[in-house]
Design a protein around this nucleic acid. Structure first.
Lengths: 151, 151
DNA sequence: AGCGAATAAGTGCATATGCACCTATTATGA
DNA sequence: TCATAATAGGTGCATATGCACTTATTCGCT
């Protein structure tokens, strides 16, 4: 690879072409949109994502959940804290004392159910904005960015 | 960080279709890639973005910089702290005592120059992965997501 | 049985993020 | 001029993020 990007001056690369800067900027904007939509349910967007995944599955080890969420294990540990504090998530044990089994409580599943229509609002806004096709292509590109080259 | 895994959810919305979850997941992966590439320069990816923008412009008020970066004003205040602490950024004053003028020091501009080849590495990886056309389309979609509907 | 490797998870540190609320300064208008 | 609004910015609180390091438990092998 010779010239991956075009940098026209000596002061810096064009931030508009930077995949990281563009992603992070979009993430900030979209997060606020989803956070606002989910506010009536008392959930942040990130918490909704975690809780929705937990709610649809059997209790599973932290590391497994982190894999599913493509999230650092130690980040997950802390992201679960407010969910446990609110009684939406439980941390259980099994024979192997090293393992923590994460699961959603009844209240947790109820909150997810309550939040789904709110989530749909935010998701609908994005869809209307880009169009279903463009959004689908966008998410596909993001997934391609995220996938393990070896996987 | 862990490897991506297929997510199938029978009770809630499919997280794979959620714009927020997909964006955030991609952001985590890409951030780590850029952070790792920029590590030799002693910069995080977010710091590089801020510093690169500052370095290419005249001193400007915090609020103006926050607008350019599409970043919350109070987030910017704190993001500048480590940059000031390392002597890469300066906060100046003008006649209007309310205003803080943000600018890059000589050392700050030097660090950006040092980091640009490292940034190119990370950017090149992403380009090779998706192809220039797909990456261009992806970033275009992300910008469309970020833009103010009212212009 | 017992030792070392592997595995599962937590902590310390530093940064990133944004809302609600606050202070300080400047502009405005009766 | 002075009360008030508008503007620029900071703080407190809570969460999100991940690397380096640590602890606890189990596995594998001899």
């Amino acid at each position: 690879m010779t010239e991956p990007t075009h940098v026209k001056d000596t002061t810096g690369p064009d931030i508009a072409l930077c995949a990281h800067a563009t992603l992070r900027r979009a993430m900030r904007v979209i997060s606020q949109s989803y956070d606002a939509a989910l506010k009536p349910a008392g959930l942040k967007a990130t918490q909704f994502t975690v809780l929705a995944v937990i709610a649809g599955r059997d209790p599973m080890p932290m590391t497994r959940l982190a894999e599913i969420l493509v999230m650092d294990r130690t980040t997950l540990t802390r992201n679960l804290k407010p969910l446990v504090a609110k009684g939406w998530t439980e941390i259980g044990r099994e024979r192997d004392e090293r393992v923590r089994l994460v699961s959603a409580t009844g209240a947790g599943k109820a909150v997810v159910a309550e939040a789904i229509p709110l989530w749909r609002q935010a998701q609908g806004q994005v869809e209307r904005r880009l169009g279903a096709d463009r959004l689908s292509a966008l998410l596909g590109g993001l997934r391609a960015l995220t996938e393990d080259p070896r996987g």
